[in-house]
Amino acid sequence: MNIVVCVKQVPDTASERNLKTDDKTLDREAADGLMNELDEYAVEEALQIKEAQGGEVTVLTMGPDKAAETIRKALSMGADKAVHLVDDALHGSDALQTSAALAQALRKIGFDLVILGSESTDARTGVLAAMLAERLGVPQLSLAGKVEIDGGNVRVERQTDYGHDKVEGSLPAVVSVVEKINEPRYPSFKGIMAAKKKPVEKLAVGDIELDAAAVGLGNAPTQVVEFAAAPPRAAGTIVTDEGEGGAQAADFLASKKFV
């Protein structure tokens, strides 16, 4: 089983995140970079499948040099090797362009199964898995809370608001995962040591038969036109209990669809 896990370095959600004023892209220098949390679940799932079925886990990321930290993390968790798609021409690529670049890289690497987190904590478009599957012409099984491999097929429990759907597809396929699926392991000290010796292949746009004019901020089909800081939180609603406070609180929760 040849598994590729797509991971992304994102700014720490605990730190203050900003867009740059000049080109309206994310200021990656200003915040600590971490592996996107859902991608940790993707790496864990890939490792569990490999441990059960044998095979190899390759980590794929697209991002600046700094994203190598996130590759290292995945390798220290136990992935076997990595491919780092890094090229200044890719800076500012939107989801469509990113999926084009990753799809080309995936074609070059080869795969039976691609696993990724169902969304990233920075852009939160949540569309990459679908775009990848479409570009690669393989089934997409999204929002997986459970993955089973059975011969040439993959079955997942797709999490929904009402429970889950059972979805089945043939390999090769793209699977996106949600938090429920597992508990990601910590890198072990030995894993950290071993990660240094694992191969990391760097690819540029020219290495994946992709036209540099098709990617990057200047060529992006979508544009950030304007951005503004989130407004400060408005004053809350105070419920004074004069006998029917409980009902008011319940109404409030119902209006926000919490109950």
């Binding site: 392991r185 910590y186 890198p187 072990s188 000290f189 030995k190 894993g191």
Partner: peptide, 11 residues
Amino acid sequence: TKLGRAGLLSL
């Protein structure tokens, strides 16, 4: 157990 699996009981 977690510390052990992370290699911290073996240092």
